[in-house]
């Protein structure tokens, strides 16, 4: 199990282009495939990871590791996620200092950036589906879509801090859904 965690997050770390939310579908695919968590529980973890300091993808990995096999799992996941970054940074720092100016790297990123957007949209659609925001119609669905709309509005138009948005949504949830 520990080896599986290491392998999963090492691979994830290696392809974490775009970081943050773009890498969430990669982790989610592995988490569901290995039967570690349901997508819904995984959404909760992403929410907590997003509210905490530190990189969202790394936080999510640590969280998943802890849920799967305690402190050792968390430590292994963190290590596995950071190792590829550290190795690549050292290689680039030693040999290719002008790496990001190279045309081939820039071309690769020209193709990678739209994929990152697609990955993020994909993450949003998947989470919306698993949380019953799309597909059914009821007062409950409507209220979830309402929270989504107000959250998005305050993020885009009001520049509200993401942590504050999550906090408010949590309070609204507590008031209406219990």
């Amino acid at each position: 199990m520990i080896w599986l965690l290491f392998k999963t997050f090492f691979l994830t770390g290696l392809v974490s282009f775009g970081g943050g939310y773009a890498i969430i579908p990669v982790i989610e695919a592995e988490v569901v495939k290995n039967g570690w968590m349901t997508t819904q529980k995984f959404t909760d973890i992403v929410a907590i990871a997003g509210m905490s300091p530190g990189p969202i993808a790394t936080n999510t990995a640590i969280f998943t590791g802890y849920q799967v096999s305690g402190l050792t799992g968390a430590a292994v996941s963190a290590f596995a996620m950071v190792l590829p970054s550290l190795l690549l940074v050292l290689i680039v720092a030693m040999f290719f200092y002008k790496f990001h100016h190279s045309r081939i790297v820039q071309s690769a990123f020209y193709g990678l950036r739209p994929v990152v957007i697609a990955l993020i949209v994909f993450a949003a659609v998947k989470f919306a589906l698993s949380n019953g925001m799309i597909g059914t119609f009821s007062m409950h669905t409507l209220s979830l879509v309402g929270i989504f709309a107000v959250s998005l509005y305050s993020l885009i138009k009001r520049n509200t801090h993401p942590a504050y948005v999550i906090l408010m949504a949590g309070l609204v949830g507590m008031a209406f859904y219990s």
Partner: peptide, 22 residues
């Protein structure tokens, strides 16, 4: 549980926002 019920759609909004910014 109720708090997370409310938080989940907000997370979806955060993700859409990340795509919007990029």
């Amino acid at each position: 549980e109720a708090a997370f019920e409310g938080i989940r759609p907000a997370v979806v909004a955060l993700i859409v926002f990340a795509a919007y910014k990029m």
